[in-house]
Amino acid sequence: MIEIKNISKSFGDRKIINDVSFTFYPGKTNLMIGESGCGKTTILKLMVGLHSVDEGQILYSGRNFPALAPREKQDVRKEIGMLFQAGALFDSQTLEENVRFPLDMFTHLTKAEKLDRVNFCLERVKLEGRNKLYPSELSGGMKKRAALARAIANNPKYLFCDEPNSGLDPKTSIVIDDLIQDITREYNITTVVITHDMNSVLEIGENIMFIYKGQNWWVGTREEILKATNKELYDFVFASEFMQQVFKASRS
């Protein structure tokens, strides 16, 4: 479980994150949604330590991450897997080397055991047999799946996904969403997904936080989001004509 308590962050005079609190539960896909520029990615970067918080606590199973010593922070990070928006695969390494990287770094498995684990992860994301391909030889969707395979290679307790559907066609988006949800449930991972894709929200949003202007504006589930009366959330969810029609149709 990850809890963020009253976190704030400013860049210069601009307060980007303002007193945000939320609990991310294990075995559930926890979503952070909101308009572009509302502070979702900043919160994610604060959570993984790429930015430092000005105020507040980030508790990983009770350990306050910002207050830990560098070595202890590294230990927490070894329990984290992250899927970046653009994949962030290592260009100079093959798919197999990319997925094997955390195993090389942090485990004492034999070569054969590592290969087994790599093949298992690649199979899990439906990329079996592509071991020797380089990231430049993969499509956008394949890169995301490969990055997901790398993120789960070392059995993480926490999985962060930064806009996993951006730039993907609807069919591939669903594949990625389903993979994230399946992996989360199967291994009881605390998964945090940033998205502004409403399909994803309705597909996998089990615990949702809506961020508006750097603040926690609304909390609920995918079932509750369509009935929410919050104006800013309503404007976000029903921004498209299509969503409004779907909603009207479902009500009638």
Partner: peptide, 10 residues
């Protein structure tokens, strides 16, 4: 973000 990926891995 490849460097960020390394950092987050620990």
């Amino acid at each position: 973000e490849q460097i960020d990926a390394l950092e987050i891995m620990g």
